[in-house]
Simulated scan of single mutants.
Amino acid sequence: MTDRADPIPDDVAAMSFEEALAELEKIVGRLEKGNVALEESIAIYTRGDALKKHCDRLLRQAEMRVEKIAADAEGRPTGVEPLDVG
């Protein structure tokens, strides 16, 4: 596990955003079909929740790295500043 407050299995934590999203989409598809036994549904729902949390974390990390170009009153670039994600 990677974080005590919000445990994510190590295999999920090692996934790229694209890998996690692809697996999450498969899980959603299986659950939507409704032909999964109850116990298996609970297990794959739990894994899907971990995948979603991992994707959310990766997106937040990417947003924090994104910067926007700051401009003066005439529109000339003056540098960069953090993207306001609030």
Rank of each mutant, 00 (worst) to 15 (best):
residue 2 T to W: 00
residue 3 D to I: 01
residue 5 A to H: 06
residue 6 D to G: 03
residue 6 D to P: 00
residue 6 D to R: 07
residue 7 P to W: 07
residue 7 P to Q: 07
residue 7 P to K: 04
residue 9 P to F: 15
residue 10 D to V: 12
residue 11 D to N: 09
residue 12 V to L: 00
residue 14 A to V: 05
residue 15 M to T: 03
residue 15 M to E: 05
residue 17 F to M: 08
residue 18 E to Q: 15
residue 18 E to R: 14
residue 19 E to T: 07
residue 20 A to V: 00
residue 21 L to K: 12
residue 21 L to I: 03
residue 22 A to M: 08
residue 24 L to H: 15
residue 25 E to A: 14
residue 27 I to Q: 09
residue 29 G to F: 03
residue 29 G to L: 03
residue 29 G to C: 03
residue 30 R to M: 13
residue 33 K to H: 12
residue 37 A to H: 12
residue 38 L to D: 13
residue 39 E to F: 10
residue 40 E to N: 08
residue 42 I to C: 00
residue 42 I to H: 06
residue 42 I to V: 11
residue 43 A to Y: 04
residue 43 A to N: 11
residue 44 I to D: 10
residue 44 I to S: 09
residue 44 I to M: 15
residue 46 T to A: 13
residue 49 D to W: 09
residue 51 L to C: 09
residue 52 K to E: 04
residue 52 K to F: 08
residue 53 K to L: 12
residue 53 K to I: 01
residue 54 H to G: 02
residue 54 H to W: 05
residue 55 C to V: 14
residue 57 R to M: 00
residue 59 L to R: 08
residue 59 L to A: 11
residue 60 R to P: 02
residue 60 R to Y: 14
residue 61 Q to A: 14
residue 62 A to D: 10
residue 62 A to F: 06
residue 62 A to N: 11
residue 63 E to M: 09
residue 63 E to R: 11
residue 64 M to S: 15
residue 67 E to P: 00
residue 67 E to M: 07
residue 67 E to A: 02
residue 72 D to W: 14
residue 72 D to R: 15
residue 75 G to D: 03
residue 76 R to T: 13
residue 77 P to W: 04
residue 77 P to M: 03
residue 77 P to S: 09
residue 78 T to R: 12
residue 79 G to D: 13
residue 81 E to G: 04
residue 82 P to G: 05
residue 83 L to H: 10
residue 83 L to S: 02
residue 83 L to I: 02
residue 84 D to W: 01
residue 84 D to Q: 03
residue 85 V to S: 12
